[in-house]
Design a protein around this nucleic acid. Structure first.
Lengths: 356, 356
DNA sequence: TCCGGTCCTGACATCGATGTCACAGTTTGG
DNA sequence: CCAAACTGTGACATCGATGTCAGGACCGGA
């Protein structure tokens, strides 16, 4: 601490005093180990042709300085320019469907030392573009996106550069790429067929915002199945634009109190299903009005009656999406494909009631 | 495709042919706009002293090339060295508690243009160190960590360098830093007091792995409350080491079939609570044996009976953790503090049954 | 007219790593 | 025993951006 130089202390100290607030670099490690920086680089990256003695010295120096290499600096020069980073945009990281997908993506990424940026879309087109832009500025190696904008053509230049992009849960517009989605229309049709087979003819549809692609598909599957069964859809109550539990709850209660209440309900999204369950309970109709939901709901099997659903497989969607990204990073140049992950009808009671 | 040069084709083309697979840099934008790179930098970063005409030219060039600045390259030279990135390590991104926390962190980060790396811990000490190391190699500005290792002293050098670290959900060992946790012992005591007040004396404890800090705290709160009430804890069934729904389910069934079955159960974690609910149902005991769980469970209010819980506030934990990180990034140098987020007893029926 | 001060602008060094290449010393093969 | 090949190593340019600094154009005032 005491200065040892005289009045002419303009001479820089030849010894690098270690500043605990400074982050060590390869240069520091090299100096401490008495080798060149390139040799440190070789040791850190496990490159061959370094003597065991040198390896040991470098390791010890790196350890004693708590050196962590700067991945991004290395990236800059590195030939393939990979950042070992993925961008994932989901509905909301707080939502169980998104969480399961996220988890599957993470597991695949982890196995390759890839880190995942996760962002929530909140069905807001502005957030979509902001998030994608944030990912691109950080030079992610690939994008897994849930989208809500009218068109994803803003991604065309990036796709042309070869960045792998996989769209999940919803199909994009204006671009060709890999897509991984649930069997939305077919699942909705299966749910509808199930209710029809129990004798229901007046089945209400509770749907999400009409501008969301999956919501449209589910509605289409529902209506087409009714058509196939020869049910006149004119007086079928189709309610859309519900975006949370509360709206669904109110809509269902209004239906129950209408002149011709439905004998069954198809709720086309998990939050809507929960709102519908609440509504049925509040009116004491949960043992008389049938209900089938799209997308599984936690603890649905423990409710009384259990909630019959068309379950999606978010884990499989995430797994497949990540697999596509890595396949393309490994050189797959085939044309973009759409992968449809099947849904599964799980009967638990609420969907197996006959109209009274 | 056909070569237009003669045998001496060593002459490089003076015109830069635009390669659609190449990612544009500031140099490319500068060339197209007919300005220097530094001017492009100024425009992109909104620095002053650039003429409106130049701004327009640069903007147009950047737009036409679909230029996205490389944040990490900028970072390298940038004075503060901030990467606008955060590392978040949670129990599992697929778990609703983690999801809620993650969401709150994301919201705070988003407001400052900060992206979040999310990783799952899975209560595996190796994953903890691997994840932290991956974060540090990517030069995150701050760390929000759920931990499981015996000691976090491996973080001391990083803390000394001034990287803000906040521990969430569980208290760390061997380091001093900001900590945000639920009121574990007090919450467990409140749950216990609640059951005692309904006349229960033989209350079983179903607990998570004993080496997890929060699990210990909840057990302590439970036992201390029994002590205060003068209940002999000798013949109180305390079962720990349950790490999933299934184990909890089996443990509970074994208890019910034992010689002196409990009249009430305190399940100290959300998966354990679910396993306990299943066990009670399978044995038809859900209307006779009381149950209070620690941590809320989705749809708990719709079950029959509703599940009484001591609810945590994961959103508030995440919000507070992010707030601490940003406060420290903004210069707060105060000593590390522990923030305790209160829990709340929510009565729904399962905890309000008297012993038969 | 000259001077000092803004306003704009670009050349250049630099951040922390890796790719290339040159070079010395050691083996190997003929 | 010597050329060829291989091993171990470090100097240096470079990746894409920003900080520094210097210089030219233009302004108003003396």
């Amino acid at each position: 601490m005491t200065s040892m130089s005289g009045p002419e202390d303009w001479v820089a100290s030849p010894v690098d005093v270690v500043d605990p607030r400074a982050r060590p670099t390869m240069k520091n490690v090299a100096a401490l180990a008495g080798v060149g920086v390139k040799t440190v680089s070789r040791v850190i990256n496990g490159e061959p042709n370094v003597s065991p003695a040198t390896i040991a010295r470098v390791r010890a120096a790196a350890e004693s300085l708590d050196f962590h290499p700067d991945l991004h600096a290395g990236n800059l020069r590195r030939a393939d320019g990979r950042s070992s980073t993925l961008g994932l945009l989901v509905g909301s990281v707080g939502n169980p469907f998104s969480g399961a997908m996220h988890r599957a993506v993470e597991d695949a990424a982890n196995a390759r030392g890839v880190a995942v940026f996760a962002s929530s879309l909140d069905d807001d087109p502005d957030r979509e573009e902001v998030a994608v832009s944030a990912f691109l500025r950080r030079r992610v190696d690939g994008l897994i996106l849930t989208t809500v904008s009218k068109s994803q053509s803003y991604l065309l230049p990036e796709l042309r550069r070869g960045t792998p992009v996989v769209f999940v849960d919803r199909e994009p517009a204006g671009v060709e790429a890999d897509v991984v989605v649930s069997d939305n229309a077919a699942g909705a049709a299966a749910a509808t067929r199930h209710l029809l087979s129990y004798g229901h003819r007046r089945i209400a549809f509770l749907g999400d915002r009409a501008d969301i692609q999956t919501a449209q598909e589910r509605r289409r599957g529902f209506l087409e199945e009714l058509g196939r069964a020869g049910v006149a859809t004119a007086d079928i109550p189709v309610i859309t634009g519900l975006h949370d539990e509360d709206a669904a709850n109110r809509a269902l209660i209004a239906l129950l109190e209408s002149e011709h209440p439905p004998t069954a309900v198809f709720s086309s999204q998990n939050l809507i299903t929960i709102g519908a369950v609440r509504g049925l309970r509040e009116r004491g109709a949960h043992h008389t009005v049938a209900l089938v939901g799209f997308d599984d709901v936690p603890l649905a099997d423990l409710l009384e009656p259990g909630v019959t659903v068309v379950a999606q497989n978010p884990h499989e969607i995430g797994r497949l999406a990540a697999a596509r990204i890595f396949a393309r990073l490994d050189g797959d140049r085939s044309a973009g494909r759409t992968y449809v992950v099947p849904t599964e009808l799980i009967t638990r009671g609420s969907g197996e009631m006959r109209p009274k």
